[in-house]
Design a protein around this nucleic acid. Structure first.
Length: 763
DNA sequence: GAGTTTGAAACT
DNA sequence: CAGTTTCAAACTC
């Protein structure tokens, strides 16, 4: 598509671009190369304001460029669509290009080039031409501004604005551009108007892009690690994608959409989503034009993918985990079978029938406790999280304590599982929300059907299906479902129709009560809602393999107190959780197949799957003894640390327990991805039974501490300080924080604002 | 499906 | 902190 001239120009430009400062200087200096000359006019037209932003952070990442290159390729493929003429026009204007300025200029020019009459489709088509050029240039410019974390906010903002606008415009490109052209500058207001008008078009366009981008997404994300996390999510989401895309598009503000291209280009941008977010509406730059180019060009490649990622950023890191998990899970599942649903509806609880392992999403939070999913069947477990009907209460157990007393739903949300809420909110931000809603809706439909059946029958069905646990359903009669006796409540979810509870207060209608109760409980025991089973990070076993194996490293946070069951029945929380007993346990006559308290492995595998035996072997001698050498405190610390470190998402993942064979999945076992170091048992290296955890761990590996769950921090930020007495179930609040353990994380965690998250209407 | 057993949660 | 009670899941028949 590109004319030789263009390419040449771009190349030369690229050189200059490498040093944005140089460019900037050039622009300023009276003495300038030919390029500078071109630029000046551009500046005149546009405004200098844009410049600073452009140059603000001149970090060029090689990988980014590589991305662009990829895009180019991608674009090229898509190019056929582009009409050469327009593209050439744009390029001409660009020649001198002082990158940003030119870009802006080009944007200004675009309207002219395109003429008012152009339809969006045309615009979209046209865009490809420029994209090639811009793909190179823009990315750089953008990169400079936004990519580097170092970049000053102000400049970033300006650029971001441009980007945002551009993004907005991209969808509504033509109309918007026209307006902009008319004004000389597109005012934010004008742009907006244009955007609003074109929403439908945008959507349509977005869809088209989705299709186009589909393939591109991979390319886009290839580079950076950060991006990868998103990539997985996005891709997955996308894969099912087409479904997802429209939702995303609609969900995403116009602004974001346009952004995507850029963001996609620059992984770095992802890092600073915050910068972009607020400013979308305002724009000064000809950004519209830029966007234009960008979008059409590079942007086209992966509008979506990039977008979500960009949106994700703020919350992303957290989300990333989620997505990662999801993606990972999905992969795992895929390996086994089809779990598209999960991906598609990441957030949505999937009905048992589906193979999807949705569960993860909603539950990501700490509330994993009860929800632990049994490994037995991914299928079964899939949706432990929230039965379609169930409404999420999930909140990170710990978080509630932190949360301020809330009134109203929002408050509820706050108290609610951070993970879920977070996710939801995040999702909303991302635009994923829609998907979730849709999924929920579908789930609801399912539920309705399901609800028609008597609760018991339902439950029974579920049990038979092995999913009873997947969807927590309680039978509380006296607790009103406001105590930990209630599995639903303990799991952080609202009771649903399918529950056979009586006088249930664990419903959205009683959010206030639920929250208050929750707080009360947490005040007593901050970890009351935390996962009961903590798993240490170990090497991540490959998917598939680990499912059956016992997680040697995993241990029940408090240990059991079994006296008659010999820790061989589900009465024992350790056994139920698929973990061996540990020093923390006060059990008598422990015969836990997953690992005896004394450290001996179980020989007898009552009902325990073969795999268990293997795990047992691992467990033998080593696990408890080794694990505990540090003392139980360590475990608890580990637990705490784990919580802290854990990404919020730990999710109610399905744990594949040896029970798989069993009709009923194990109840909740929540594994938390914890820093490996903390947990005693880690060393064993056994594959953990709990996949989710593994996934999580993976995620962590990539994610690093930055992403640490703020939620956890919030809740546990005292974190290190919180201790649970090994024997006593209750945890005393931290007195002197022993931050020492993970100095770094605390800081990171604080930032997570549930409130902000909650702000997006969750549920 | 009803009744029993069990151990966690809650309470004192 | 220990002991007791309450509770609901797990289990058995």
């Amino acid at each position: 598509m590109d004319t030789p001239e263009k390419t040449q120009i771009s190349s030369s430009l690229s050189k200059f671009e490498d040093s944005p400062v140089f460019n900037y200087i050039n622009s300023l200096s009276p003495i300038k190369p030919v390029k500078s000359i071109h630029l000046t006019p551009a500046f005149n037209l546009l405004s200098f304001a844009s410049l600073p932003s452009i140059f603000t952070s001149p970090h060029v990442s090689s990988h980014k460029e590589s991305r662009f290159l990829k895009r180019h390729n991608y674009i090229d493929q898509s190019k056929p669509v582009l009409p050469s003429g327009k593209g050439t026009k744009v390029s001409t204007s660009e020649e001198p290009c002082m990158e940003a300025s030119q870009l802006c200029d080009s944007s200004a020019e675009l309207p002219e080039n395109f003429g008012p009459g152009l339809s969006l489709d045309d615009a979209s088509l046209e865009l490809p031409n420029e994209p090639l050029r811009f793909a190179i240039e823009l990315p750089r410019t953008l990169k400079y501004d936004c990519d580097s974390p170092d970049c000053d906010p102000a400049p970033c903002i300006t650029e971001t604005n441009c980007a945002l606008e551009s993004t907005c415009t991209s969808l509504s490109i033509v109309p918007f551009v026209q307006e902009a052209s008319g004004n000389g500058f597109p005012d934010g207001g004008v742009e907006i108007a244009g955007i609003s008008q074109n929403k439908q078009e945008r959507e349509t366009i977005g869809c088209a892009w989705d299709n186009l981008t589909h393939g591109a997404t991979d390319m886009i994300f290839n580079s950076p690690n950060d991006s990868e996390a998103f990539r997985g999510v996005i891709q997955k989401s996308l894969d099912p994608g087409t479904k997802f895309c429209p939702t995303l598009i609609s969900a995403f503000p116009q602004n974001h959409i346009t952004k995507l291209p850029q963001t996609s280009v620059d992984s770095d941008e992802l890092k600073d989503p915050s910068l972009h977010t607020g400013e979308v509406g305002v724009t000064n730059c000809m950004s519209g034009s830029l966007m234009h180019n960008v979008e059409t060009g590079a942007g086209v490649s992966a509008p979506f993918s990039s977008e979500p990622s960009s949106n994700l950023h703020r919350g992303f890191r957290r989300r990333c985990l989620d997505f990662e998990i999801l993606s990972a899970r999905r992969k795992n599942l895929d390996g086994g079978s089809n779990t598209s649903s999960c991906v598609d509806n990441q957030l949505v609880p999937v009905r048992p029938g589906n193979g999807s392992s949705v569960c993860i999403v909603p539950g990501i939070g700490l509330h994993l406790n009860a929800l632990a999913i049994t490994s037995s069947d991914n299928q079964n477990t899939k949706h432990k999280i929230l039965p379609s009907g169930t409404q999420k209460l999930s909140f990170p157990s710990s978080t509630t304590s932190i949360l301020t007393p809330t009134t109203g739903q929002e408050a509820v949300h706050e108290s609610l599982n951070p993970a879920s809420t977070e996710r939801e909110t995040n999702v909303t931000e991302n635009g994923v929300e829609l998907a979730e809603d849709a999924s929920q809706a579908s789930a609801c439909a399912i539920n309705e059907e399901f609800n028609q059946i008597s609760p018991k029958k339902k439950r029974r069905r579920l049990e038979q299906a092995g999913e009873s646990e997947a969807c927590k359903r309680c039978s509380c009669k006296k607790s009103k479902c406001l105590k930990l006796y209630c599995e639903c409540f303990a799991a952080g979810v609202y009771c649903i129709d399918s529950c056979s509870c009586q006088d249930c207060f664990n419903k959205p209608f009683h959010e206030d009560i639920v929250l208050a109760t929750r707080k009360q409980i947490e005040s007593r025991n901050p970890l009351a809602f935390a996962p009961k089973v903590i798993r240490t990070s170990e090497s991540i076993p490959e998917v598939g393999d680990d499912s059956s194996k016992t997680p040697a490293s995993a241990r029940h946070k408090r240990g059991c107190n079994c006296k008659k069951s010999s820790c061989l029945k589900k009465y024992c929380e350790c056994y139920q959780g698929g973990v061996g007993c540990s020093i923390n346990c006060r059990c008598e006559g422990c015969k836990n197949a997953f690992g005896r308290k004394d450290g001996s492995a179980m020989v007898e595998t009552e009902g325990v799957p073969e795999e268990d035996e293997e795990t047992d072997l691992d467990m033998n001698g080593v696990d408890k003894n080794l694990e505990k050498p540090d003392t139980f405190d360590n475990e608890e610390q580990n637990l705490v640390s784990a919580l802290q470190t854990t990404p919020l998402q730990l999710c109610r993942t399905l744990v594949q327990l040896p029970f798989s064979s069993m009709s009923k999945p194990l109840r909740s076992f929540v594994s938390i991805g914890s820093s490996s170091t903390l947990y005693n048992g880690q060393g064993y290296g056994k594959p953990s039974i709990i996949r989710p955890r593994n996934i999580i761990e993976k995620h962590f590996q990539t994610v690093a501490e930055d992403e640490m769950p703020e939620m956890l921090l919030d809740n546990y930020s005292a974190g290190t300080g919180i201790k649970t007495s090994p024997n006593s179930k209750r945890i005393s609040p931290p007195h002197g924080s022993t931050s020492g353990q993970r100095s770094g994380r605390k800081l990171i965690l604080q930032s997570i604002p549930y409130s902000t998250l909650n702000g997006n209407g969750i549920q």
